[in-house]
Write a protein that binds this DNA or RNA. Structure first.
Length: 316
DNA sequence: GGCCAGGCTAGCA
DNA sequence: TGCTAGCATGGC
């Protein structure tokens, strides 16, 4: 990826814009479609498909700043850039641009994924429909962990409502080009909340405990995301599931959506099980064990195989 | 009105 | 180790 301050255009009026080298194919329209439908109830991301960009806050250099991720080119020759307010210090802009590149999966080699599973007719059909679709990651592991816990056992729509309520309660709001932009709260802000404050937002008692207690674990150092990043998938699974409220599925989601790990298979995920049932034409819903067995063939791309199957639900 | 939702824990065998 | 009731609420 390219995200160096040396390549940034800079003036006092124009936004600072840093190009992001993005591996083809990439189809931004599929990203806008997906998040308009399933992922955008929480107003943490402002989609602007007509301008081929989305805007969200990114923490960099100890502050949160609005970053517009802009797309250009076409599916087979995509371009992207991260635009941030004029006057952003170059080292902050460079860090934010790196986060933006990570978020859109700039380095992900979809061609290799497609080649790996091209012999499977079920996937070949999905690849036709979804060519150039990449995961949109969370730029901040803590935000991802919170969203994952909140989403446990809830439909995505209601989960999005709860995520947004938490952001309104404990987060900040930036102004960007005349629009308010919600900033997801940091760990300190969530750790200060009481369970009752979340109960008042329609969190269950247990979910309120998981959310606040996990934030407190981050604040007191029991959960260190910089350390988690260095762990293998299996090590992270072993360590993080020691924390109350974080099971296998939640660690898998963290590794997928925060770190972009390529080979996670959330076999217990109800959406994945439904998708496999549909795409494989099964009479009954497969168990997690079934998914583990079926998905073994998707290595080393089990994350993206899962993502494309999730997307198959949206296209159905 | 009932079932389901991109699960997890605690208790039990 | 493996299984299951209970959790709690909104969406459909």
């Amino acid at each position: 990826m390219t995200a160096s301050p040396a390549s940034a255009a800079f003036s006092s009026d124009e936004p600072m814009r840093i190009p992001i080298a993005i591996a083809p194919p990439y189809d931004a329209r599929l990203l806008f479609e997906r998040y308009a439908q399933v992922g955008n109830r929480a107003r943490l991301v402002r989609l602007e498909p007509e301008r081929r960009r989305f805007v969200r806050a990114i923490r960099a250099g100890g502050t949160a700043l609005p970053v517009a991720v802009e797309f250009g080119g076409d599916v087979e020759a995509p371009t992207a850039a991260a635009a941030m307010p004029a006057g952003t210090p170059p080292h902050v802009a460079a860090e934010a641009a790196r986060a933006a590149a990570h978020m859109i999966g700039a380095d992900v080699d979809l061609a290799a994924f497609y080649a790996c599973l091209s012999d499977d007719a079920r996937f070949a059909a999905l690849f036709d429909r979804l060519r150039g679709s990449k995961l949109l990651l969370d730029p901040d592991p803590f935000e991802c962990m919170m969203k994952t816990i909140i989403t446990q056992q809830l439909n995505l729509s209601f989960a999005g409502t709860l995520i947004e309520r938490l952001a309104v309660l404990a987060g900040d709001t930036l102004e960007h080009e005349g629009h308010p932009l919600l900033v997801f709260p940091d760990a300190e802000s969530v750790a200060r909340l009481s369970y009752d404050e979340l109960r008042a937002l329609s969190f269950s008692q247990r979910k309120a405990e998981y959310v606040v207690d996990t934030a407190r674990a981050v604040v007191d150092g029991r959960l260190d995301f910089a350390r988690v990043e260095r762990l293998s998938d299996d090590e992270a699974l072993r360590e993080l599931t020691q924390l109350r409220g974080i099971g296998r599925w939640s660690v898998e989601c963290l590794l997928i959506f925060a770190y972009g790990r390529p080979d996670l298979l959330p076999a217990a995920d109800i959406g994945l099980r439904n998708a496999v049932r549909n795409v494989w034409g099964l009479d009954a819903q497969p168990t997690a064990k079934d998914i583990d067995a079926i998905g073994a063939a998707w290595t080393p791309w089990r994350t993206y195989a899962t993502y494309y199957l999730w997307e198959s639900l949206r296209l159905k």
